[in-house]
């Protein structure tokens, strides 16, 4: 019996490694070009400015790993900032406000998950409905921007934690905790492995007796929760609630996850990759702001090109695997 030895670097790690290389290269390019780019604080700032994106990317990674997609995340972020701002204005204590925000996000996620699983609505359409609903609800609360004056929120938002010569914010700590917890869940629990199994082959996962349905709903709840949490971090960042916050953020998040090496068809990817994906996008943005003459729209073009490059890379890997198994029929 012939047993093909697996390649030394399993191909499933390739995209993540590629992402990391891209990160090192872009960051390196920035350091060579600009004085003071390669400082610890710039790296810390990458995390500070993108903490909410990291949390969103974690939630999105769960969803995309099952082969789904969540278009509602940007809208849920906006709704979260709005609920937070409105609740605080109404005099709710900070802890109750946060709880309410997180609960709202999770319930929205649950609703979308049930629509997708029970009614077999395509994830694209179900989360599109979620997106419309969340954005619309923002404006039901208030059409104007509402600023946040609660001392507790302001304290959390502005407090910085010194870490040697650099300092970070609480948001970064929260984001990193979320990443660590997500990695634990994805790799060391049955729920997490079932997420991968569903993305690999849903009918197989069901035949293997795994709780595929529960997981499919669960990932949208997780994404909803992450969106709400990211919304809280975003409201620390902006100190206001507004229905037009985070417009188009779902695209940035999906781009970060794809650049981070997660296959959009599901089953392959790592949260760490998504984090590096966010950092790559953040670095591109930082370089463009350092450049000064380069305008911000280059960010979008670069992200588009990166997306294309990584989609092409994924395509190659999938092809290679199929060749390996001699599965291709044509």
């Amino acid at each position: 019996m012939t047993v093909i030895a697996p390649p030394r670097v399993p191909s499933r790690f390739l995209p993540v490694i590629a992402t990391f290389v891209v990160f090192v290269l872009t960051f390196g390019a920035g350091s060579v070009r600009y004085e003071g780019f390669a400082s610890g604080q710039i790296v810390a700032n990458l995390f500070i400015d993108n903490a909410f994106l990291i949390v969103l990317a974690v939630g999105m990674t769960f969803v995309i790993l099952t082969g789904g997609i969540d278009l509602s995340v940007g809208a849920v972020v906006a709704l979260s900032t709005m609920i937070a701002a409105a609740a605080l204005r109404a005099g709710w204590p900070a802890w109750l406000t946060m709880l309410a925000v997180l609960a709202t996000g999770s319930v929205l996620g649950l609703g979308m998950g049930l629509m997708i699983h029970k009614l077999r609505v395509q994830p694209f359409i179900a989360t599109l409905a979620g997106m419309f609903l969340a954005r619309g609800l923002c404006f039901v609360i208030s059409v104007e921007s509402v600023s946040i004056k609660d001392p507790a929120f302001r304290a959390i938002a502005t407090e910085s934690i010194p870490l040697g010569d650099v300092s970070i914010t609480y948001s970064v700590v929260v984001a990193l905790l979320v990443v660590a917890f997500a990695a634990y869940v994805l790799h060391l629990t049955r729920f997490g492995r079932t997420v991968y199994a569903v993305g690999g082959n849903e009918s197989s996962a069901t035949l293997m007796g795994l709780a595929a349905g529960r997981v499919k709903v669960g990932v949208y709840v997780i994404s909803g929760f992450c969106s709400a949490l990211a919304g809280l971090l975003f409201s620390f960042y902006m100190l206001s609630g507004y229905g037009l916050h985070a417009v188009g953020m779902e695209l940035d998040v999906i781009a970060a996850v794809v650049v981070g090496g997660t296959l959009l068809s599901g089953g392959v990817g790592y949260v760490v990759g998504s984090v590096v994906g966010v950092l790559v996008l953040g670095t591109v943005q930082t370089i463009i702001s350092f450049e000064g003459t380069l305008s911000s729209w280059w960010t979008k073009i670069v992200i588009g090109v990166l997306l294309l490059a990584f989609i092409a890379l994924q395509r190659l890997i999938v092809h290679r695997q199929r060749d390996l198994q001699g599965l291709s029929r044509d």
Partner: peptide
């Protein structure tokens, strides 16, 4: 030709397209 899922294939232009438009109008 390349055989990429439509939703992903068109996501590329969705993201980059507005950048191109801004490039043309110089923002």
């Amino acid at each position: 030709v390349v055989g990429i899922q439509p939703i992903i294939a068109t996501l590329v232009l969705m993201t980059a397209g507005r950048g191109i438009a801004m490039l043309l109008t110089e923002g």
